[in-house]
Design a protein around this nucleic acid. Structure first.
Length: 583
DNA sequence: TGTACATGTCATGGG
DNA sequence: TACCCATGACATGTA
């Protein structure tokens, strides 16, 4: 490596000047001046060693403080919060840590007692919006926060640290620490360093941080910062600091950087509580600032008092944030929590047809953003922005085909799985229209738009002045909602008709079988009767005798019965003749 | 990957 | 004539 050979070279002043000139001409190399100046680096190295020794001492003190702090708190398993541990003997618990007493610890502990005593009643204090406390955060709590075991834990600490009394103590402690370290503040008390997840977070550009500081941080925040760390360059000059810092994130790995510039320090630091640059963030110029943990992307947005932070320019923040154990809920981010804006921004939606909107529905997020972009919204007064809740009587007026429970209409014959799936679909569908309505600031609920009777709907529409886009969307929502219900009812009726027809078909089949059986029986009976009649006929005919006592021939005569029951013997020839006469 | 099913949506016609 | 409803047809998502 180039840097390894450099110690053997003792550059002359001319060489150094030349390096200076070259460095000034190519300041964008991404490396600081000290990279080319071995003497300067050596001085830095020595100074760094001194700092590291002081740092070790200070870290030991910090660990003791943490122990003392933890000894006074216990985790409430139910609430997940740290609550003051009850002193059974009425003695403050910091006495348990008296094995390592120090002025700082005692001062901090006494203040913490007060803070802990106040903590349960101070839940209203939201620390994420309390910059002064945040400035104190890394020094004492970063090692704890770095555990990232629970967002509640972090919040508990935030609440604790938001207490003015505790902040005073912390300020005192930080003053002490500053005196010990000669103004140098460690780079390694950041939660990110210990939390591997933070390596996934895109570090905000320091220039952005510096430029946004005025928006993000209230003046008192900066004042506190500067008061606590007067030797640190003010935030206004952070840009200059970045110019002198090598961009290790892009050109060097952290380990490489440490091996090059701090070969000795690395070994000593590995055993310390925090690593200087082993987690991917090391060497970042921002790491020189003890408050760096504050400027994680998500927290920046949380700290943002309004929407001054341009979120639209940082979509990667949301996409790259792991939803794991970082303690930062994506859903809880300001993307969805900003009441003033649509969760997808304030882009308007002009001129999109409904089918276009459907295309966007495939991606609700983008759909909403595009929707907002299409229509220039005419913001209504606050009273109109809030969707009017559906009155009970209005809900009672729901059409006979209530749309809200289409699943129940389908009866209970369906499996729960099918019901769940249908419900999910219904909710999804509803949410799409709701999202559309929200995107266009429609001051009604989708249920109202769909379910209200015509007169009520027209009256409601006449009471609010909606622009063309809003009117079109409301009409579409109502039409789609009505048609959806109609389609559901139609299908329901169709299924009912099919079921009824199937039932009728079964009934008719049963009737057919019954009639066929009856017919079979009747045919059998008829055959028997005919057979009996024939037998009887022959028997009667055989008994008949003419005048000479001879039997009649069945071929020449036949028996016929009149309606009155009288039986006549009719000659067949005569009968044949009579038929001929009739024809 | 193909298929069956459920659902939403549109077009159309009747009341 | 506008509106509502019913329904066939089609598209889409899902198991």
């Amino acid at each position: 490596m180039m840097e390894i050979e450099m110690p053997k070279i003792h550059p002359s002043q001319q060489d150094i000047d030349l390096i200076d000139i070259l460095w000034r001409q190519d300041i964008d190399l991404g490396a600081g001046r000290e990279v080319f100046d071995y003497c300067q680096r050596q001085k830095e190295h020595e100074l760094q060693q001194q700092r590291e020794q002081e740092e070790d001492k200070r870290l030991q003190q910090q660990r003791e403080q943490e122990k003392a702090l933890l000894a006074q708190l216990q985790l409430d398993e139910e609430t997940g919060e740290f609550v003051p541990r009850l002193a059974t003997s009425g003695q403050p618990l910091q006495t348990a840590t008296s094995a390592a007493p120090s002025q700082v610890i005692q001062t901090t502990s006494s203040c913490l007692d007060a803070a802990v005593a106040l903590a349960p009643n101070s839940s209203h204090i939201m620390m994420k919006s309390d910059p002064p406390a945040l400035t104190q955060l890394p020094l004492l709590t970063a090692p704890l926060l770095s555990q990232r075991t629970s967002p509640d834990l972090e919040q508990a600490w935030m609440e604790l640290l938001s207490l003015p009394e505790l902040q005073q103590c912390l300020n005192m402690q930080m003053e002490d620490t500053r005196e010990l370290t000669g103004g140098y503040l460690p780079t390694n008390t950041t939660p990110e360093v210990q939390d591997p997840n933070y390596s996934f977070y895109p570090l905000p550009n320091l220039e952005e941080v510096a430029s946004n500081t005025a928006d993000v941080c209230p003046p008192e925040f900066i004042n506190t910062f500067e008061e606590s760390f007067p030797n640190i360059a003010p935030l206004d000059h952070l840009n200059q600091m970045t110019l002198k810092a090598p961009d290790l994130n892009t050109h060097f790995s952290a380990d490489t950087f440490c091996d090059i510039f701090y070969p000795d320090v690395v070994n000593t630091k590995v055993t310390s509580v925090t690593l200087p640059c082993g987690q991917g963030n090391g060497g970042n110029s921002l790491a020189e600032i003890p408050n760096k943990p504050i400027f994680t992307p998500m927290e920046l947005q949380d700290l943002s008092p309004g929407d001054t932070f341009d979120r639209d320019n940082k979509p990667e923040i949301m996409t790259e944030c792991p939803d794991s154990d970082s303690g930062v809920s994506v859903e809880a981010s300001s993307y969805s929590s900003s009441p003033e804006k649509s969760m997808y921004g304030d882009r308007s939606f002009g001129g999109y047809s409904d089918s276009d909107m459907d295309e966007m529905d495939s991606n609700p997020g983008s759909a909403q953003s595009d929707y907002s972009e299409m229509f220039s919204l005419s913001f209504q007064p606050d009273g109109l922005q809030t969707p009017i809740s559906v009155l009970p009587q209005q809900r009672d007026k729901e059409p006979k085909h209530g749309k809200t429970e289409p699943d129940d209409e389908t009866g209970h014959s369906e499996s729960p799985f099918t019901k769940d799936k249908k419900r999910r679909r219904s909710e999804k569908r509803l949410s799409r229209d709701e999202q559309r309505a929200k995107a266009l600031q429609i001051p009604f609920t989708v249920d109202m738009i769909i379910d209200l009777p015509v007169d009520d709907f027209n009256e409601m529409m006449s009471k609010h002045q909606l622009n063309e886009a809003q009117l079109a969307l409301v009409r579409d929502i109502r039409r789609r909602g009505k048609n959806k219900v109609a389609a559901q009812n139609c299908r329901k009726r169709k299924m009912e008709n099919i079921t009824e027809l199937e039932y009728d078909l079964d009934s008719l089949k049963e009737e057919k079988e019954r009639l066929q059986t009856e017919k079979t029986k009747n045919d059998s009976s008829l055959r028997k009767m005919k057979q009996q009649l024939n037998t009887l006929y022959l028997e009667v005919f055989s008994l008949l005798r003419d005048e000479e006592g001879k039997p009649y021939s069945p071929l020449e005569y036949s028996l016929q019965q009149t309606t009155d029951g009288t039986v006549f013997l009719v000659p067949r020839i005569k009968k044949t003749l009579s038929k001929k006469k009739d024809s």
